[in-house]
Design a protein around this nucleic acid. Structure first.
Lengths: 203, 203
DNA sequence: GACGTCATGTAAACAGTTACATGATTTT
DNA sequence: AAAATCATGTAACTGTTTACATGACGTC
C-alpha cells in the first residue's frame, strides 16, 4: 500500500509523467523507497480512477506524447490520512549479510573481494547523496537551512540515507580488517604468541 | 530465492524443526532477514524434495510431534554455490521515512509522537541485540573473540544490526530536535522581523 | 551502426503478508 | 478462566521483479 502514498508524496514536489516519476524516485526517495517504472504505470492509472490524481496528455514533437499527473485535493487528503497512521518499524533485509553470516564456510579471497565490491557500491551511493545534499543546501549552513526552509522532509530523510551509507562503508572496512587479521594468524602460524595490545574496537 | 539459503545458513547452527527455526530466525538473523513461520514450512518441504535437507519425525509426549530438519551435504554444497555469487546492494525501505518526507503537511504533534514511538521501538531492538552480543562474547573482549572464535559471521552481522539501531535512534533524536526548534520559531512569532539574508532563490 | 533516451505498457513468475484452521499443554 | 506455547499447515491476497513488446529520435 505504501507505494501508492509514496507516489503521492513525490508528486508533492511537482507534476510528473510516469516516466519522469520513475526518474524522480531515483533521486528524491531512492534512499528509502524503490519502484520500477512497471509498477508506477498501473498504480498511476488506479490513482486516477480513485480521483487522487488527475492527468493531462501533453503532445510533444520529436518524441512520444506523455501523460502528466497532478495530485488532486482528494489525493492530498488521502495522503494526509495515511501520514497520520502509525508506521511499522523497519529492519534491514540484506542478502550480503546472509553471506557474511555463513561466510566462515567460504573461501576467504572471495569474501574479501565481495566486501571490497560492496563497499565500493556504497561509496558511489554516498557520493551521490552528498552531492544531492549540497544541491539542497546551496551553500547555506545546515542550521540555517533547517530553521528557514519551508519543507525540510526531503533533507531530513536524505540525511538518513547518508548515515546509512556511511555505516555500510564503515562496517565493510571493519569486517575487512577483522578478516585480514584472521588470515594473518593462519598464514603465519608460528612467530606470534605475543599478546597484542587491546586492539581497537572499530566503532 | 534468498529465503532458501537463509534457512540453510541458519541450519548451520544446528538441526531444527520449522517451529524452532522460526524462533531462531528471530534471534540469529532477525537483524537482516525476516520470515514468518508460514513461509518456512513449505520452503522446508521444497528443500527436502531437492535433497538439501533431511528430516526425522521426533515423537514427543505431552506436546505435538515435530519434524526436525538437518542440512545435508548437498545442502552445504548448494549453500556454498550461492555464497560465491555476488550480492545485490541493499537499500533502506521504510514507510516511516516516507511519512517524514511528506511530513511538512502533517500536524507537528502527531509527527513528534510518531518519532518518539519509533525511537522507543529501536531502543528495544538495540537492547535485545546488545544482550545477544554479550551472550556471544561471554565476557571476553571483542578483539580476543574475533581472533580466536571459529565462526565470526554471526558476531559480525549482529554488530551491523547494533550499528543500524543506534543510527535509527540518533536520527530520530536529531529530527525531534530540529522540529522542536522549528516549532519554537512559530510559537514565538514576533521578536524577529529582522530581514534575513537574501534567502532562497529558485530551485 | 550501436547505444542511450523518451515513453508506456502487459504478462508471468516469484516473494511476502494476512487470514483461516486445529488442538493439546502450560503458564499467569 | 484466559493467554501463551508447542506444532504444522493451507488459501487468498498483495507486492515486487523479470521478461516481453514497441517505436521514434538523438548521440558517439
Amino acid at each position: 500500500m505504501s507505494l501508492r502514498y509514496t507516489i503521492l508524496a513525490v508528486l508533492l514536489d511537482g507534476d510528473a509523467s510516469g516516466y519522469e516519476l520513475a526518474k524522480r524516485f531515483d533521486i528524491s526517495v531512492a534512499n528509502f523507497w524503490h519502484a520500477l517504472p512497471q509498477q508506477l504505470y498501473p498504480e498511476l492509472t488506479r490513482l486516477e480512477r480513485k480521483g487522487m490524481v488527475t492527468s493531462t496528455t501533453v503532445i510533444q514533437e520529436g518524441r512520444p506524447n506523455k501523460r502528466v499527473y497532478s495530485i488532486s485535493q482528494e489525493g492530498r487528503q488521502a495522503l494526509l490520512g495515511w501520514l497520520r497512521q502509525p508506521s511499522r518499524i523497519t529492519a534491514i533485509k540484506d542478502e550480503f549479510l546472509v553471506r557474511v553470516y555463513a561466510g566462515d564456510l567460504l573461501d576467504l579471497p572471495i569474501l574479501m573481494e565481495e566486501l571490497r565490491r560492496t563497499r565500493a557500491q556504497h561509496e558511489v551511493k554516498l557520493g551521490a547523496y552528498e552531492r544531492l545534499r549540497d544541491a539542497l543546501l546551496q551553500g547555506r549552513p545546515e542550521g540555517e537551512y533547517l530553521r528557514t526552509e519551508r519543507r525540510v522532509g526531503p533533507y531530513l530523510t536524505l540525511q538518513r540515507g547518508i548515515m546509512f551509507e556511511r555505516e555500510n562503508i564503515a562496517w565493510c572496512t571493519w569486517v575487512e580488517h577483522v578478516l585480514r587479521q584472521r588470515v594473518e594468524r593462519y598464514s603465519l602460524p608460528s612467530r606470534d604468541k605475543r599478546p597484542k595490545k587491546p586492539s581497537k574496537s572499530a566503532r
